[in-house]
Design a protein around this nucleic acid. Structure first.
Length: 480
RNA sequence: CGGGGCGUAGCGCAGUUUGGUUAGCGCACCUGCCUUGGGAGCAGGGGGUCGGAGGUUCGAGUCCUCUCGCCCCGACCA
């Protein structure tokens, strides 16, 4: 393994996952630190990746009938305080604005940690009749949460996200919306990001501050820890009651509205890195890769024009695919191979004099690093096919990883051993009590990720902690 | 916020224990030649005031105090 030496720049994924994660982000040019704690710069390559994720989701959000809008960054303290549970949940991490210029403000302003409060206060003005419903609005925004421990993409002080806020006439409609958006997230992750997820309901203890029910999609990272990748909340009438969002229904009775909110963030970038990456760096799913294919021409001085003109022809042929021609002369082909692998470009096209003579190019998959030869005449089809295959294989590989790292356990001793030694998801029976949940967390650091929507096991078992009979089988894991 | 580790050139590090003249090394960068099928080679060159502030001292990267930031492990969170 002489090649091993060439990737000495980044730590090994298996030996030091955290160091590997940070190194990949920085070396691949996704993000950088600033002098402000927890505030990162998303660099152009990283932002292009986010834009692709965002566009794929935005399309789905609109297809399900929502419109984008924008609400203010600042939330007056009095508004934030209206919903008691909500403010209690977020108070520890709210950043406050106390001055405007030199003047001290009469009322402090929260920099939004999430926008329920400000949006609900506006919605109360918009809703009068059942004919005003539903309100289906989404906003793309930044939010700020003063976290104590931060990590690039996974938990930053300021982060970018999308938050949907909807208002409905009935309880059923709100619940339907909550699950619809959870499904949209699942589809986004699985179809575009090639990340398999477990969708399910959060426990009381883990639900969103102020929600009636919270649902999540949970993904499994390469180190066996779970990541909450998206949440969808059925807010019930909690916010409607404190913000006075009510309407006159068809039956001429005044009723409080039913609401939902749902969001995913730039944390998804972290998930992409941790699910697919390897010791050579990033591996990006073709559908969201900023560059899907890179052409690396191989030439000597006397073959330069010959090779480059052919390479440009190929680039033209590949119109419709996000392709880049790396014609820099200051780097050798080998150097470029390594760099593009680090940056996770799904497919590399190598073309040199020897290939051209035979009428071929060499195609190299990033995920498997396997080379195949393709006739130049067929390159467009082959590249298209390969990108589809890579997309699909990445998902299958990730799904196999989840399967291999999901353990059924019915015994607490075994549970502790499994979480310690094998990591990953553990499916186990749980009685439904917060006490057992809390104890298990204290003793094992594992939390209930969610109660899966899809039944994972028939029949009844005994709660692994208290032994009480139950038919609830839930997902446990240590999480980010 | 508790425990631990660490901030010296863009990156990775040595030097700090035992203060001593112009602070080193590798990579990267610039110039030239030469090269280009898995991180090429040679020659020459530029760049740091040692995270920041204060202090001790004839003298501080090195000692003391405070502070900011990063990483890991916990408690908290998308």
């Amino acid at each position: 393994m002489v090649e091993k030496e060439f990737v000495k720049d980044i730590p090994s994924k298996s030996e030091d996952f955290s160091a590997w994660y940070t190194a990949v982000i920085r070396k691949a040019g996704l993000a950088d630190y600033t002098s402000l704690k927890g505030c990162m710069v998303i660099k152009p390559y990283g932002f292009a990746l986010w834009e692709n994720v965002r566009n794929a989701l935005d399309k789905r959000i609109k297809e399900t009938g929502h419109q984008n809008a924008y609400f203010p960054l600042f939330i007056p303290e009095s508004l934030l305080k209206k919903e008691a549970e909500h403010v209690e949940g977020f108070a520890p991490e709210v950043a406050w604005v106390t001055h405007g210029g030199k003047e001290e403000l009469e009322e402090r302003l929260a920099v939004r940690p999430t926008s329920e409060a400000i949006i609900c206060s506006i919605y109360s003005k918009w809703v009068r009749s059942y004919r005003d419903l539903p309100i289906l609005i989404n906003q793309w925004a930044n939010v700020v949460r003063w976290e104590k421990v931060t990590r690039l993409f996974l938990r930053t002080t300021e982060f970018l996200w999308q938050e949907g806020h909807t208002v409905h006439r009935t309880k059923e409609e709100a619940q339907e919306e909550t699950l619809r958006m959870l499904n949209v997230y699942k589809d986004l992750l699985e179809t575009e990001l090639a990340i398999p997820v477990i969708s399910g309901q959060k426990t009381e203890r883990e639900k969103f501050a102020g929600a009636l029910k919270t649902y999540s999609i949970e993904a499994l990272m390469g180190d066996g820890k779970a990541l909450q990748a998206g949440t969808s909340h059925n807010l019930g009438q909690h916010f409607a009651k404190v913000f006075d969002i009510k309407f006159l229904d068809e039956d001429q009775k005044e009723k409080y509205a039913w609401q939902t909110s749902w969001g995913v963030s730039t944390r998804l970038i972290g998930a992409i890195i941790m699910v697919h990456g390897d010791d050579y760096g990033l591996i990006l799913p073709p559908k969201i890769a900023p560059i899907q294919s890179v052409i690396v021409p191989i030439f000597k001085k006397n073959t330069k024009e010959f090779v480059l003109s052919k390479a440009r022809e190929i680039k033209d042929v590949l119109k419709g695919i996000r392709v880049e021609l790396d014609d820099r002369e200051e780097y050798t082909p080998g150097w470029k191979f390594n760099e593009w692998e680090l940056k996770g470009v799904p497919l590399r096209i190598e073309i040199g004099p020897r290939d051209i003579e035979k009428g071929n190019v060499v195609l190299v998959r990033r995920d498997t690093r396997k080379k195949v030869v393709s006739p130049i005449a067929e390159v467009k089809n082959r590249v298209g096919e390969l990108l589809d295959i890579i997309q699909n294989d990445l998902f299958l590989k990730a799904r196999r990883f989840v399967e291999d790292n999901t353990h059924y356990v019915e015994d607490y001793g075994k549970f502790k051993k499994t979480i310690e030694e094998k990591k990953g998801f553990i499916i186990a029976p749980w009685c439904g009590s917060s006490e057992c949940e809390e104890k298990i967390k204290e003793e094992t650091k594992a939390t209930i990720r969610n109660i899966p929507l899809a039944k994972v096991k028939e029949g009844r078992g005994k709660c692994i902690y208290c032994g009480k009979e139950t038919d609830l089988y839930v997902y446990f894991a240590r999480a980010y």
